[in-house]
Each structure stands twice: as structure tokens, then as C-alpha cells.
């Protein structure tokens, strides 16, 4: 293929892509409309979500470290979407910044927390050998220790691979918070029950993306269905060298990191 052919191809390819997307959107709207229409006569017994079949999905998230610019829009979106208290110590997702220096020192900061310890520590540029951001959230583990220890079964794994907390059932004993190796849980000060990322389950069952994924300007976060061969996550998993957090604990996280540094815990 010479340059001319390539450019010609491009001219055709992008509009074609746009058209396809429009067609897909129209189709999606139609199904949504029929779903809604179908649900209305059925009234209480069968809500609109009845069209959603959890058996057919298995969700996870991919995070490409090199794409994260630490803008924290995901953190803000998450707090707004999920009624997470604004104080800088309640997070369903947060960003850590790692600075690795020449003498193999590691400086880690939570960029969403502005405490004394988390203030910017200026580094001599020449001392820094690499630096990167790591978005963190609940790993929706395949073997979640939080689910294992919950005395009342208020925290549980769904069929589609999401770990949820039933705030109506949680007694607030906080054993799950102790059991989570990733610090992903907190006690919600209003409900006095455990809270954490739920992959925006209310959005996902409607076919939408989690808020953090939706707003990420660099597409550092990829959400998808591991059961679908066509999902972006499946492709991400195939195309990258993947690592998960604290693999030795055998929790089998479903948040997959591409380009994760060994210093990250």
C-alpha cells in the first residue's frame, strides 16, 4: 500500500466508522425503547432491568498506566455519581502518584488528599528516573476476602462479577474493611455502613459505562465484559502485558493493569 492508497482509505474509513456508530446508536435506542415499552405494561413485577441477564456478562476493568495523566476527573465523577462524601478520605476510586528517584527511592502520594504529608514534594528533576500515576479502585476480586468475612452476607459477588454491598443489610462491623488488602472500602458517614466502588452497577446494567471510565479524557480506564470476545477489555487483555495488585494474596483481582511498576502495592 502506498501513501496515496492509505490516505484514500482513511477518507473512506472514518466516515464509514461514523455511519456505523450512528446505526449502532439508533439500534440501541430502539431496543431501549422497546424494553421500556415492554416493561410498562408488566408494571411492578418485571422492571426494565429484567431485560438484563447477569449470566451473560462478567465484568472487569483495564487500566493503562502510561495513559493516566492524573487529572482526577474520574475521582470527581465517581464522587458525584455515587454520593461519596467530599472529604479527602472517602474514596471509591483515587489516584496515586509514584516518583522513583535515582537512588531507588520511592515517593508515593495520594494526589486527591491534600494533607501535610501529601503536599507536593519538589524533586530535583535530574534525580527522578521515572514517575507515573496509578488509579486505584475496588478490584472486584474473583476470591474477595471481604465477601468471605462479612458476617451477615451484606457484601456479595454477583453473577456478572461485581462485588456489591447491600447497605440495607450491612451491620457496620467493618470486618470487610479490615479484610480488604487494597484499602478500597470505607464506612459511609451517613449510612454507617461499608461502601466501595460497585463499577457503577446501576449504569452498567443499563448498558452504560462506569462514570470514571466515561469521563477519562485519555481512555486510561477500559471497562468491559470478559465473557464477550468483542469487548474492549478482552482486547486490552490480549494486547497488553497484564499485572494485578498483590497477586500473592490469591484474591484474583479483575482490575487489570498494563504497564504496572513493581513498586506499586
Amino acid at each position: 500500500m502506498n501513501k496515496r492508497d492509505f490516505l484514500k482509505g482513511m477518507i473512506l474509513f472514518f466516515p464509514a466508522g461514523g455511519l456505523l456508530e450512528m446505526a449502532a446508536n439508533a439500534a440501541a435506542k430502539e431496543t431501549a425503547a422497546t424494553d421500556a415499552a415492554g416493561a410498562q405494561p408488566a408494571a411492578k413485577g418485571a422492571p426494565a432491568a429484567s431485560a438484563y441477564n447477569g449470566d451473560k456478562h462478567y465484568y472487569g476493568m483495564g487500566i493503562e498506566i502510561d495513559k493516566c495523566i492524573g487529572c482526577s476527573r474520574c475521582v470527581e465523577a465517581c464522587k458525584a455519581e455515587n454520593d461519596v462524601p467530599q472529604e479527602p478520605f472517602y474514596f471509591r476510586t483515587w489516584i496515586e502518584r509514584y516518583v522513583i528517584t535515582k537512588d531507588h527511592g520511592v515517593i508515593v502520594e495520594s494526589i486527591n488528599v491534600k494533607g501535610k504529608a501529601a503536599k507536593e514534594t519538589p524533586q530535583e528533576d535530574r534525580d527522578v528516573i521515572r514517575t507515573f500515576f496509578v488509579p486505584k479502585l475496588c478490584n472486584h476480586c474473583i476470591h474477595p476476602p471481604c465477601v468471605q468475612v462479612c458476617p451477615v452476607g451484606a457484601t456479595f459477588s454477583t453473577k456478572d462479577g461485581v462485588v456489591l454491598v447491600d447497605s440495607e443489610r450491612c451491620v457496620g462491623c467493618r470486618y470487610c474493611i479490615q479484610a480488604c488488602p487494597y484499602g478500597a472500602r470505607y464506612l459511609h458517614p451517613k449510612t454507617r455502613t461499608a461502601d466501595k466502588c460497585n463499577f457503577c452497577y446501576h449504569r452498567v446494567v443499563k448498558g452504560l459505562l462506569p462514570a470514571c471510565v466515561e469521563v477519562c479524557p485519555t481512555q486510561a480506564r477500559i471497562f468491559g465484559d470478559l465473557k464477550s470476545k468483542a469487548s474492549r477489555l478482552t482486547r486490552f487483555y490480549r494486547m497488553n502485558k497484564i499485572h494485578v495488585l498483590k497477586p500473592a494474596l490469591n484474591t484474583e483481582p479483575k482490575v487489570y493493569y498494563a504497564g504496572l511498576d513493581g513498586e506499586v502495592r
Binding site: P88, A118, I177, A184, L187
Partner: peptide, 21 residues
């Protein structure tokens, strides 16, 4: 909890500031 932020040494996961038990 805000006051406790001043007493952290090193790095902690942000949710860990609260001593739950």
C-alpha cells in the same frame, strides 16, 4: 479525620485514615 491527616507518616491508602476497630 481531617486532623488525623496531619499525623500520617509516609503514604497510606486514603481510606485508611480512619481507625475502624
Amino acid at each position: 479525620l481531617g486532623e488525623l491527616l496531619e499525623h500520617i507518616t509516609g503514604f497510606i491508602y486514603p481510606n485508611e485514615i480512619e481507625i475502624h476497630w
